[in-house]
C-alpha cells in the first residue's frame, strides 16, 4: 500500500520538477546559460498563483477553475522573463562565468522582491485540491488535483517536443542552438529567438511554481532549495536535454520520496550521490552532449 502512495507522491514531485527543469534545459540548450533564476521563477509562480487565485475567489470565481486559473497566472508571471533576458543580453558575448553570475545577481534581487511583495511569512492556499475530489482505483485513493498536474506535465512535455521537433519555429530554435552565427547568417532572427526561448523557459518555471501552490506553502526558502533539486535533475539528465529533464525528474522525484520515507537524514545526499555516480559513469549525463 505504502509503496503505491509513495510512488504517487514521487511522480507528483517529478511532474513539477520536470516543468521547472525543462525551462532550465531549454534555456541552456539554446543559449548555453545555466539559469540559476529558475528557482526564483518557481517561487514567483507560486506566490503569484496564490494571489491570483485568492483574488479570483474573492470575485466569486468558482473553485473548480483552480487548475486553469493557476496555469494562466503562471504563464502571466513568466513574462518577467522579458525583463531578465533584456538585462542578460548585455553579457551574451561574454565568458559564461559572468552569465552564470548574472543569473545569481537576479537570485539575490528576486529574494527581496518576493519579500517586499508577499512578506516573510509562508503563504498557503487552504485545502483546495479537495475541490477536485479523489479517485479510487483498486483500493487506493488518489487526489485528482495531483493527477491533473501530472497530466499537465505530460501535455507540456508533448507540446515542447512538438514545438521543437515538428514546427518551423522549432527548426530555427534548433539551428540557433547548434550554431547561432550560422543561423543568423541564414536569416534567423536569433535575437528574437533568444528572447522567445528565455521567456518560454521562464514560463515553464512559473507554471511549475503555480501548480504546486495548492499542495505546498510558498516561502522564501523555495528558490534556493529548488535549485538544489533542479540541478541534480539537470546533471543526471544531461545539460540542455529536455528528454534528460524528464527522466532526471522521475529519478530525483522517486529518490527523494524513497529517502524521505526510509532514510530522512540522507535526502539531499542520496540525490547528489546519484548525481556523482552518473557523472563518473556518463560524464555528460544520460542524454547530454559533450561540451562544444
Amino acid at each position: 500500500m505504502a509503496t503505491v502512495d509513495l510512488l504517487f507522491a514521487a511522480l507528483f514531485n517529478a511532474a513539477v520538477l520536470f516543468l521547472v527543469t525543462a525551462g532550465l534545459q531549454l534555456i541552456f540548450g539554446v543559449q548555453r546559460i545555466v539559469n540559476l533564476t529558475a528557482g526564483s521563477l518557481y517561487a514567483l509562480g507560486a506566490y503569484f498563483g496564490a494571489s491570483v487565485f485568492e483574488w479570483f475567489s474573492a470575485q466569486g470565481g468558482s473553485p473548480a477553475l483552480l487548475l486553469p486559473v493557476l496555469i494562466l497566472s503562471g504563464l502571466l508571471a513568466g513574462q518577467v522573463g522579458f525583463v531578465i533576458e533584456r538585462v542578460l543580453r548585455t553579457v551574451y558575448g561574454r565568458d559564461e562565468a559572468f552569465q552564470l553570475l548574472m543569473t545569481f545577481a537576479f537570485v539575490l534581487m528576486f529574494q527581496d522582491v518576493l519579500r517586499y511583495v508577499w512578506g516573510a511569512q509562508p503563504r498557503l492556499l487552504g485545502d483546495l485540491p479537495s475541490v477536485y475530489g479523489t479517485l479510487a482505483v483498486g483500493g487506493f485513493t488518489f487526489p485528482v488535483y495531483n493527477l491533473l498536474v501530472m497530466l499537465s506535465a505530460l501535455v507540456v512535455a508533448g507540446l515542447l517536443y512538438w514545438l521543437i521537433e515538428r514546427t518551423s519555429l522549432g527548426h530555427v530554435v534548433r539551428a540557433t542552438a547548434e550554431n547561432g552565427r550560422m543561423a543568423e547568417a541564414l536569416g534567423a532572427n536569433t535575437r528574437r529567438i533568444n528572447t522567445l526561448v528565455f521567456v518560454l523557459g521562464s514560463m515553464l518555471g512559473t507554471v511549475g511554481g503555480a501548480l504546486v501552490i495548492p499542495t505546498t506553502a510558498a516561502s522564501l526558502e523555495m528558490p534556493i532549495a529548488l535549485i538544489v533539486e533542479a540541478f541534480a535533475v539537470v546533471v543526471i539528465g544531461g545539460l540542455g536535454s529536455i528528454r534528460g529533464a524528464f527522466l532526471g525528474a522521475i529519478i530525483v522525484g522517486v529518490l527523494r520520496a524513497l529517502s524521505l520515507t526510509y532514510f530522512p537524514e540522507l535526502e539531499v545526499m542520496s540525490i547528489y550521490l546519484v548525481v556523482i555516480v552518473v557523472l563518473v559513469v556518463r560524464p555528460y549525463g544520460l542524454f547530454g552532449k559533450a561540451e562544444a
Binding site: V87, L101, M102, F104, A105, F106, V107, L108, M109, F110, Q111, D112, V113, Y116
Partner: peptide, 10 residues
C-alpha cells in the same frame, strides 16, 4: 539589502 547587492553585482 539583498536586492541592492544583486543590483550592484549585475
Amino acid at each position: 539589502w539583498r536586492f541592492a547587492l544583486g543590483a550592484i553585482l549585475a
